[in-house]
Design a binder for these strands. Structure first.
Lengths: 335, 335
DNA sequence: TTGAAAGCGCTACCAA
DNA sequence: TTGGTAGCGCTTTCAA
């Protein structure tokens, strides 16, 4: 077991005090003579010394660690989000402790663990948490930001895309291009993303006097989109346009339409949501709504830094980032 | 700034010593009377106390943290891997500090950071590291395991899929089904995954007397697969079967074939590698080689635990997990 | 510019 | 079964 080198050993070798070694490895160490510093670095190099980050956290009482709790890592949207977060945080010298909420596991169970690590901040993506837990976090003084979820009437900050407006825009697009028999394939009804998209879509349809939207309950997966679409196509009133609550379901929808020998978009138009990279692929060429993920992430990181630096400022901030329609080939009559 | 509660405060409220509080919150604490324990838990609850994981690491001199360094998080294969790792490690009470190697950033730059956290173990996925860094890790006593990469002649353990055999099997499949004009679309030539797949494929072709394999250099992305295929189709000798080094490129290949008005598999057969979930989607129905990821992850976690518990045992172990051909609809003449 | 010394919050050993 | 106490490796005053 190769004993780990400590600053004391470096100090001995360099013939300085341990404090001096510490200073040399502190981010800003103006108070060290160049010659001394050289000697210390030299000794450290020789011994293969690395400062112990744990001990540093201990005395500074700040961890430089951001906890991220993410529920659907494998869904196509989140790896990108995660990657971006990692890059941004690494760039500002923060590190990321990542937790996943496994299927059927409540986030409330894992949050206490995260909190034990004294994380400076906590990002919760794609899940909500109970209000009891919110209180816990607030009490522990941890900066918490929800990503792509909102908890209404709580004092917790959040960054999400403006899903209501996104849904409204899809309604306008489909009506403007002359579609008559609209359907909506919903994601899980306990996700605010789905609910907002649906509400915006439905509300706008109603405002414009459209009646009779069909609806299928699905679950954000390819298979559920596929199956729901088959069901819709078998109905008495066969839709001529289907808005899917996310892209993955929309791919399933497109494949289902083709399976029935129909053409997208001539027979049925399909719209997705998220604009994941695959949406641009030849085989699908999916018209969808892009969430401006880069901006969302930027805002989240900014908010986080703000919260960490000014924990006293507790008024929640909700950033709502508008999405953009991305017109490709899966809706007839546009462009 | 809500001051964080420490065990001392709990001790005071419960009128016991701080040691006792510590015992109550230690994983195994047989030496506490039930009544006392109750009183402590009661007090802790009241104050909202959580043990400080950082301080615990400090005194136990073990972090319970596993570092994972991952390069291509957004490529379709890795989110699944990551998710699995998280679940497995969370299940055994370990936590995961995640690092990404951003484009153009050497892993050698970030490894020192990881090491500072005194991680118990380190998993390096989809990148290699310089031998200097390997030495560093070994010296620091950190258990390191490479996932899906190998460093030859180093004493570093690794788990990877048996890409050579996978490539051989594809060669057999394509020859057995009567294909005559074979092509290979390669991933980056500095990845052992690509090199092994290619070597196995090429070697087996040669063994069976086939000559004249065409080859394109690509980069594991959809676009590169797409473009390479277009190029191949424009050549004098148009391939009737293309083996792509990963699934994502294979999707690009299929789309490119269709773009040219040709049929998969009647005109051109396509084979991928990885068997990511999309490969099963209707639109592609890709014949590919599945890496048995679940087994690979299981092995990695096991190896990690072994290394952590027996750091003295330094002989490297290389686990090579055989992949399976998954026959779907993108190769003609089978099934 | 440097060194001595007091913690940070916990664990673990020893004594009671 | 409990309490006292000595660290873990660092940062950070305070003095020199």
């Amino acid at each position: 077991m190769p004993k780990r080198i400590t600053s004391i050993e470096v100090a001995e070798l360099a013939e300085v005090s341990q404090s001096t070694v510490s200073r040399v490895f502190s981010d800003d160490s103006p108070n060290v003579a160049t010659a001394t510093r050289e000697r210390v670095l030299q000794a450290a190099q020789e011994l293969g010394y690395r400062p112990n980050a744990i001990a540093r956290m201990m005395s500074r009482r700040e961890s430089n660690i951001i906890g991220i709790v993410m529920a659907h890592i494998t869904s196509p949207f989140y790896p990108y989000v995660l990657d971006k977060f990692l890059q941004r945080f690494q760039a500002i010298g923060k590190h990321v402790l990542l937790f996943t909420a496994a299927e059927g596991q409540s986030i409330d169970d894992i949050l206490p663990l995260v909190l034990q690590y004294q994380v400076d901040g906590l990002i919760i993506a794609s899940t909500t948490l109970s209000s009891a837990m919110v209180d816990e976090c607030v009490r522990s003084g941890t900066a918490v930001i929800l990503f792509n979820r909102i908890i209404k009437n709580s004092n917790i900050s959040a960054v999400c895309s403006d899903n209501v407006t996104g849904g409204r825009n899809v309604a306008d697009l489909l009506l403007d291009t002359g579609h008559k028999r609209l359907a909506y394939i919903a994601g899980p009804s306990n996700t605010s993303t789905n609910n907002d998209r649906e509400r915006g879509f439905y509300k706008r349809l109603t405002e414009r006097g459209y009646q009779g939207m069909q609806r299928m309950q699905a679950s954000y997966t390819y298979e559920s989109g596929y199956q729901s679409t088959l069901d819709l196509l078998d109905r008495e009133i066969q839709p001529d346009a289907i808005f899917c609550a996310n892209d993955t379901m929309a791919f399933g929808a497109i494949d289902a339409v083709r399976e029935r020998g129909l053409i997208v978009p001539d027979d049925v138009s399909i719209v997705g949501y998220d604009n994941i990279p695959m949406a641009g692929w030849q085989a699908y060429s999916l018209t969808t709504v892009s969430q401006d993920v880069d901006v969302m992430i930027e805002k989240t990181v900014d908010l986080m830094q703000l919260k960490i630096e000014h924990p006293e400022n507790s008024t929640p901030i909700i950033e709502s980032i508008a999405g953009q329609l991305v017109i490709r080939g899966s809706v007839r009559g546009c462009g």
